[in-house]
Design a binder for these strands. Sequence first.
DNA 1: GGCTTTGTTTTATA
DNA 2: GTATAAAACAAAGC
Length: 282
Amino acid sequence: MPELPEVEIIVRGLRKEVIGKTFSDVWTDTKKLVKQDSFEDFKRKLIGRKIVSIGRRGKNILIYLDNEEILLIHQKISGHLLLGKWKFENNVWVPPVGPLSDDRVNGYLHIVFSLDDGRQIALSDQRKFAKIEIIKDVNFDLGPEPLDIDFNSFKDLFKRKKGKIKQILMDQNFIAGIGNIYASEILYLSNVHPEESANKLDEKDLKKIYDNMQFILKESIRLKGDSFSDFRDLNGEKGGFQNIMKVYQKNGKECEKCGAKILRINLGGRGTFFCPNCQKKK
DNA sequence: GGCTTTGTTTTATA
DNA sequence: GTATAAAACAAAGC
């Protein structure tokens, strides 16, 4: 599931590869992925536009165009962007030999952007939940970036907060980019129970959460993201963060720190994983 | 065929 | 009026 590190991997890859390229065509088999505009309007707006820069805000990919507009892509659960040279034959996109053809999760192409250099940016998205639109400004109602904020500002965010800490970390308006997987992993390393009330956390707890938040997100970016599920990089290749996960989907397994069994609970409708021995409520 | 998966949005409640 | 919790929604695998 693309959270901040996975989106960052895609953004860095695009930045290296497609700045200066121009959109020459757009294809889809799932028009509803494009919000607001009809697909026909969307296509008309995009063709001929040159990519001038690439950015990220939370989990949103921002592709800045030469007419001051911005192509926004949110990959949601199973979406991931790929870059390569497909061939369109008999109404089907035929991938090049390699990860783009070998790995099933790279085969659910629902939007394909053709570039003027002969390559395509393709969205593979098994569940078709991704969101694509053209916007004019980036005035998101999102919290600060976890990798940009300093500890004092982070601490200030918690003033008057009293919800459950895991849900707070996942709240995009509170802080942007953390989803279900990283929230569980951050709290495990911090020895904080996911249902702990924010107003019971002292400065030491918040410092641990802050440090582990930065560590985990950076470590995952270094490992090219989490490919536990559908995420792949632009080349269709897996990242490595799933290999160092400690609790996510590990219910019943032994905690690496103490040997207790990892538990799974339902918190806010989300699977939540933690060690009942290392992460005790106050 | 109901349950699960996640991120976001909408609705309800305190 | 606001913060938080719960429910709804998207599609598909098992």
